[in-house]
Design a protein around this nucleic acid. Sequence first.
RNA 1: GCACCGAUGGCGAAGUGGCUAACGCGCUGGUCUGCAAAACCAGUAUUCAUGGGUUCAAAUCCCAUUCGGUGCUCCA
Length: 494
Amino acid sequence: MELFNTLTGRVEPLTPSDGATFRMYACGPTVYDYGHIGNFRTFIHVDTLRRYLKQIGMPVRHVMNVTDVDDKIIRNASAAGMDIAAYSKRFEGAFFEDMESLGLERPEVVPHATDNIPEMVSLIERLRDQDIAYQAEDGSWYFRIAKFPDYGKLSKKDFDGIEDGARVDVDEYEKDAARDFALWKAVKNDSNGVREHSWETSLGAGRPGWHIECSAMASKYLGDTFDLHAGGEDLMFPHHENEIAQSESATHKQFALHWMHVRFLLVEGRKMSKSEGNFYTLRDLLLKGHRASAIRFLLMSVPYRHQLNFTFDGLAESTSAVERLRTFAARMKGTFPAGINEELAAATAKALAGYDAALSNDLNTAEARAAIFDLVRAGNVAADAGALRAENATEILAVLQRFDGVFAVLQDRDAEITRSALDWAEQSGRINEASAELLATLSFTDADIDALVTERTHAKKSRNFARADAIRKELLEKGILLEDSKDGVRWKRK
RNA sequence: GCACCGAUGGCGAAGUGGCUAACGCGCUGGUCUGCAAAACCAGUAUUCAUGGGUUCAAAUCCCAUUCGGUGCUCCA
């Protein structure tokens, strides 16, 4: 398994440096609002990595922090008249529900910033003892970048010479140098004159800076040096650069050996932003009637190092693609004559090899996807020609299983997920955001559908095709598709 | 402004020196079907933003131009 390493600029092998468990850290969510599809693209690719590593037999210890104290949380919580713990818990709960909807595995360790304040303080103390951390007039502590010559090695920035000239004062007056970043923010009053949430520590009353959280939690749960650190491309600078500076200054050891950065997505060709009106949370999409599986498949179809242009056409495409995979998997579960078709067995083996080669090569999900569709076509051709044998079906199902261990779209949980999204919308007074078609479809229970399907079958038997077609049409208008097959009628929600 | 990344069919997208340029979606025609759907078959880029260069050989390497994105500031 090889993966591009931002630090070295090369594709390099991934192995557990302790010879046993692969230790990885991913910057998790700041829980101040609902997660958007850009957040989830990053988390999905990190999940793809962890799923594939496990699949090739590498035990994984994956740590993802939850940032439950920061400026936005403090601001939003105070606006909502809540304390920060209650406020962040609410969005953290929503975040994990969304992860579940998108088929993301829960990391082995999910530490919270507010549970690790002593660790952060002691890390800052170590820096203070080396004169790398210093306290400004307002009581805040900063990191002295001039003391870390390697600063910029991850983002490939050269700060020599820029530093002196860049001493723009503006509101940076307390700092020794403009680039120095906050380790500990001294407590202050908010705009209403209310004292902000803070912790009393040896550094004075205040709260941790964002960067120190990850440094402290990564070393606490993974050790001073660990195998991989991942995050969105925007975190490379300054966040990850600062983590390296803090941790390596404190420990004098290399921090993360490998760095993975997931590129941003565009929405309809433009950067996703609230002002562009193209900003979508997962819940927004579910309420519009898009399926969780299609969203997942689209987000992971484009390899992590390329920009993904998220479009509604793309979402429709992914819906069809997932449907095709599911239809095929169901077909392979049928009964076939005993024996094996060697030609098809060879195609099956080739698909499996292609899938592994693709993911092993810097997590090329697009190529892995292609290998699977090659298998779908080969299997369908053989089945149509009556050349599919029982052993082939078993083998194919095993390959699909392996594929789904990473892609995780075969099991259909879509209706269930959409229903919970609707429940949530109802409870939070946002049901008006749900699409009319979706509500119409879901107003039909499975029993209602089955009754109509049965009636149609009787109509067909008595060759009353007009009635049969009318029922089919009625169901289609409610978003339900019928398929007549030799084994009876199958229906599915559009 | 400085730095970095990208541009492949109707759309998404793989491919980074040499097999007929993967795969998915869509579209057109056919098979199957009472009709559909699903599935299959055939067709759907002589060509990889534009211009120049290197090479026996370029989508792939080099230079320039145009367009798009990102970082330099909170951001996945």
